[in-house]
Amino acid sequence: MLGPITDPLAYAFFQRALAASVMVGLVCAVVGCYMILRGYAFMGDALSHAAFPGVVVAYLLRGPFYVGAAVASVATALAIGWVARRGGLRGDTVIGVLFAGMFALGIFLFSLIPNYVGDLFGFLFGEVLGIGPGDLVALLLLAVAVLSVIAVLWKELLYSTFDPLGAAASGLPVERLDYLFLAIIAVAIVVSLQAVGIILVVAMLVTPAATAQLLTRSFGRLLAISALIGVVAPVAGLYISYWTNSASGATIVLVETAIFLVAVAAGRNGATRRPAALQSSEVAQPAR
C-alpha cells in the first residue's frame, strides 16, 4: 500500500534528490523571509539570472559550476549597488539593466560552445535527480553556512531591514549588513541552481515567505511557516515528479505556488488587508 511512497526511496539518486531539495527549500525559505521584507524579490530574480555567465565560464574552464555562479552573482550584486549610487538611478532600474545584460552574456557565451542544447536545459531548469554524492556534501556545507550566518545575525538583519535609519543611527553597520545579505542571497541561489535551475530559483526564495506573510503578522511565525513550506513542498514535488515523470524543479515550484494560492483563497483577508489600508489613509492625513 505504501509502495508509491517507499518504492522510489530504494534508489540512491532519489534519496540524494530528496535531501538536496529539502536543504534548498529550507535555505531559500529562510533567506526569502528577509528578502520579501526588504522588497528584494526582483533582486533575487536578477542575481539568479546573473549567475548564468558564471556557470558557463566554469563549464568552459572545466571548473566547479558553483564557484562560477557565486562569483558572477556576487559581482552583479555589488555592481548593482555601485552603479545605482554612481549614476543616481533607482535600484530597480539598474537591476533591470544588469540582470538582462548578464543573462544575455551567459547565452552569448553558451552559444559559442558547439552542441550545447542539452546542457542549457539543465542549467536553466535544474536536474535535482542528477545530483551526485559530492554535490550533496558541497550543498550541505553551503546550506549550513547560510543558516549559521542568519542564526548569528538574525536580530541585526531584522532591525536593519525594518528601520535602516534607526539601526544605523544607533551604531549598527547597516551598509555592511546590506552587502552581507546580498552575498547570502547569492549563495542561496548557488545552492539552488542544480535543484531548480536559474529561472525558477526566485520562486523557491519568494513563494514560501510570501505564503507565510499571508498567514501571520509575527516575524517568528513568518520564519517558521516559510521554513515548513520550504521543507514540505520539495518532498511533495519530488514524489509527484517521480509518479508523473515530470520535471522535478518545475513540479516543486508548482507545489509551492499551489500552497500560495490556497493561502490567498483561505487566508484571513481582513486581517492582512485592513492594516495596510488603515495606514495609508492615516499617513496621508495632514497633521493639523
Binding site: L37, L158, F162, D163, L165, G166, A169, S170, Q213, T216, R217, S218, F219, R221, L222, P275, A276, Q279, V283
Partner: peptide
C-alpha cells in the same frame, strides 16, 4: 533616532 512615521513600513510583521 526615531524616523518620520512615513519612512516606516507599517505592514512589517513585528
Amino acid at each position: 533616532y526615531v524616523p518620520q512615521a512615513e519612512l516606516v513600513d507599517w505592514s512589517f510583521p513585528v
